[in-house]
Nucleic acid binder design. Structure first.
Lengths: 262, 262
DNA sequence: CTGTCGCCATTGTCCAGACCATCTAGATGG
DNA sequence: CCATCTAGATGGTCTGGACAATGGCGACAG
């Protein structure tokens, strides 16, 4: 059908462009199905390899997924709002899991999590933030939180071993009153947080554990909690899939939030 | 050379895995060169198509770039720390461009920017934050900041037209004392900020304007500035390439920062 | 009506080959 | 010694074809 110009831009790019326009122009809505490879082969008069190259572009842009053998579909973003301030500073409020639990349940979905505790030499990003010397160990609570059985994010919290040894924190259970409360009872109340956010493509391990489809970046949120003496007592690494999360941080005097956290 | 198992995992995945391990295991360091396609064809006894499929995996993970026709190279991340709090709340401090300018110059690199001002109906994300009705217009100052002539990030600041009309803000020049100061002089001093961060793959336009290589996600930072009355008077959309930026936000009482912002 | 099984449409993987586009290094000429 | 040109190495694009893997749906049996 539509003849492609032989000029300069590669054919597969032109096909990708037309499909992208069809998607952003609502010719194909969210969850809508794209033409099959065979249809595109016929429409553009090119080989299947070229068509697949075009579709790969869209897949790697995160616009489209292939659900074999049903076809290619337009992806839908479904955001959950993540509020790292609430989650971590409020030593006296509801602990993290409760809030995650509740906000998910409010949408009629069922949350769950796995916890795994161990003593490790933390990765460099964490060791630096906890000001550990090379080879020094820390306790880590690794969590994978899920919604309706599907993994949603990864949450690894590290604590200097010298502080938490023998406490509840090194036990592999949920801490009902929150780990921050336990830290405070141990004499290490946090009064300040430093948030560090980077965006990158996931590692193969992350892609597998979070069941990420191609073209999905992650936000890695490093959080360091400090006591009034300026000592770091907690370092968290949150891995948040970009297609499921947005991060909200407030600073100073802001009006109440009316947005829904779909 | 190394025979690949015929078991289950696709050959191109196995090749990608081996190369990835070589990279993370420091057999190939940052900026290091990967084997050529021809070498991999011979080493694994597969066709060039399969080798290219393996390399495409690494490229889309953001681990590797192909610099044609020199070969494939391991990417290096070079982070600049972005502090949205400094940049926007300090109405009385140095304005944004000055700080950008200075911090870049400190590293011996030369910063620059382009400014473009216009009156538009803002995109939904902005209109919602400024609480504009459908079709209402706003002034937008679009900036592209560059380092050593290479684009670094995109910064689009929107102001409700009713507030800034006739002021300096709608003129296409750098505002030496900062746009926040001008807003304050107009009676709209900001006392609170709301930061909204999402991570996604760039649009073709962003990829082009920021000269992003494949496998590079962006962090989009939406910032809303509120007056003491809770009125939004400024909404900013920052597009930050993931391979060049990290975002730092502090909350509460934290000790001084010793990290260098390489 | 219900469950099972097999066909079929669709995408995934891999092969083999051709020509193009671009940068670099070395040869060549002044 | 320096500038210019050229050949070669390398990745980019596209063709054409073959077989595998998977999930849905319809035909069929109970």
């Amino acid at each position: 059908m539509s003849a492609l110009r032989r000029t300069s831009r590669p054919v597969y790019q032109q096909i990708a462009d037309e499909l992208r326009d069809a998607i952003s122009g609502d010719d194909i809505g969210p969850d809508g199905r794209l033409p099959t490879e065979a249809e595109l082969v016929e429409r553009y008069g090119v080989t299947r390899g070229t068509v697949r190259q075009a579709l790969a572009v869209l897949v790697n842009e995160g616009l489209v997924v292939s659900d074999r053998p049903r076809g290619y579909f337009v992806r839908r973003r479904r955001h959950m709002t993540y509020r790292p301030q609430q989650e971590l500073l409020v030593t006296d409020g509801a602990p993290a899991m409760d809030r995650f639990h509740r906000s998910v349940a409010e949408e009629g979905r069922t949350p769950s999590q796995t916890i795994d505790v161990s003593i490790v030499v933390p990765p460099r990003e964490i060791a630096t933030r906890l000001r550990l010397n090379a080879g020094e160990t820390a306790a880590v609570r690794r969590r994978v939180r899920s919604i309706d059985g599907e993994p949603f994010n990864i949450n690894n919290s590290y604590y200097p071993l010298s502080i938490v040894q023998g406490s509840e924190i090194v036990l592999p259970h949920d801490i009902a009153r929150g780990a921050n409360r336990v830290l405070a009872e141990l004499g290490h109340r946090q009064v300040g947080l430093r948030h560090h956010l980077i965006s990158r493509m996931p590692t193969p391990s992350e892609r597998h554990r979070l069941q990420l489809s191609p073209g999905t970046p992650v936000t890695v949120h490093y959080l360091t909690g400090y006591t009034a003496e300026g000592i770091p007592v907690r370092a968290v690494e949150n891995v948040l899939p970009g297609d499921r999360h947005e991060v909200l941080i407030e600073d100073g005097q802001v009006p109440p939030d009316n947005e829904s956290s779909t």
